[in-house]
């Protein structure tokens, strides 16, 4: 191969190629051309919307002149906005931890039942994840309905007083987390099940020979082998849960007293409902640094472990 990395045939065998032809034959040019579709997709569907959102967030409310960082300043000084930040973190972290724990437990349960019956259970447990969330949340809303809650009806049978699921701040927070966990736990379950199946059986056999207990097998064999998949699923779920919109929109609309608002629902309220698109864009963009911090720590852990394994 020539030193310049081209794929050209020997010079003596063909007439001298023009500089354009040489450029076209370079490996780097070919690589660039082959990645062009991906670059176009990223530019059109990621970079442009992100850049436009940043541009919007720096306009004034009428969107006719630059206000630079005024929208960010106003948000930083707003009580409601900090409430939204806190609520979003609480919602995302609690829901992801619960989803991870429940998903892990379900995966273990499934892993230990005979293969014959496993498929049926797997299919059934995946149902919450395959139903469109707006639709399933509507079902939950009927169960939590302030006046006709079916859950309260069941509680009444055992003489438990009715719970204002969506009307009382803490119950409302619990309700939106419950629905998110119900919806998202099957995703964790299926990912963890796949990871469990990939753990070599010999490791467990060796641990058994060494007299390891069930807990020790989990602590020293299963978890280390699953650590990367746990990190990646947690990161992925954190991003999706942080940006959640439909559950809160359908169940509480951010109420009572803004105590269940998330970034997305608050951005919609400020941007679309209140006609302040630049400030709505600023609210959305505030998610970026928070998620970047989460992503940095999680991905750093994954990279470190990969290096150790290598």
């Amino acid at each position: 191969m020539p030193a310049d990395g081209t794929l050209a045939a020997p010079v003596s065998a063909a007439p001298r190629a023009s500089s354009l032809q040489r450029l076209a034959r370079r490996r780097s040019t070919i690589a660039f051309v082959m990645t062009l579709p991906l670059i176009a997709v990223i530019a059109g569907l990621v970079a442009y919307p992100a850049g436009y959102a940043i541009y919007l967030s720096m306009l004034n409310r009428r969107m006719d002149e630059f206000a630079w960082f005024l929208n960010y300043e106003i948000l930083v000084e707003s009580e409601t906005f900090w409430l939204v930040v806190w609520q979003s973190c609480l919602f995302a972290v609690t829901a992801v931890v619960l989803k991870a724990l429940i998903g892990f437990w379900l995966a273990h349960m499934l892993h230990h039942i005979p293969t014959k019956g496993q498929r049926k259970w797997r299919g059934m447990l995946l149902v919450p994840w395959v139903i469109p969330p707006a639709l399933s949340t509507l079902g939950w809303w009927w169960m939590f309905d302030p006046t006709y809650s079916s859950i309260n009806w069941l509680l009444a049978i055992i003489a438990v007083p009715p719970v204002p699921w969506l009307g009382e701040p803490w119950w409302a927070r619990v309700s939106v987390i419950i629905v998110n966990v119900w919806y998202g736990a099957p995703f964790f379950m299926i990912m963890y099940l796949a990871a469990l199946k990939s753990v070599p059986e010999q490791l467990y056999e060796a641990a058994a020979i060494d007299g390891a207990t069930g807990w020790q097998r989990l602590r020293y064999v299963t978890l280390p082998m699953m650590r990367n998949i746990i990190s990646i699923t947690v990161l992925f779920s954190l991003i999706v849960t942080f940006a959640n919109y439909d559950i809160v929109r359908v169940l509480t609309n951010g109420g009572p007293r803004d105590l269940t608002h998330l970034f997305a629902t608050y951005a919609f309220q400020v941007g679309i409902l209140s006609g302040n698109i630049p400030r709505g864009a600023a609210v959305s963009l505030f998610m970026l640094p928070l998620l970047a911090v989460f992503a940095f720590f999680i991905l750093r852990g994954v990279t470190r472990r990969n290096k150790e394994m290598a």
């Binding site: 302030p146 006709y148 699921w165 969506l166 009307g167 009382e168 109420g255 009572p256 007293r257």
Partner: peptide
């Protein structure tokens, strides 16, 4: 008012009337 009015949407009051409550 009922203790859950803080979560009522625009249809909840209609339901309260229609149900006879």
């Amino acid at each position: 008012l009922p203790n859950d009015v803080w979560a009522w949407d625009d249809a909840a009051n209609n339901r309260a009337l229609i149900s006879g409550r």
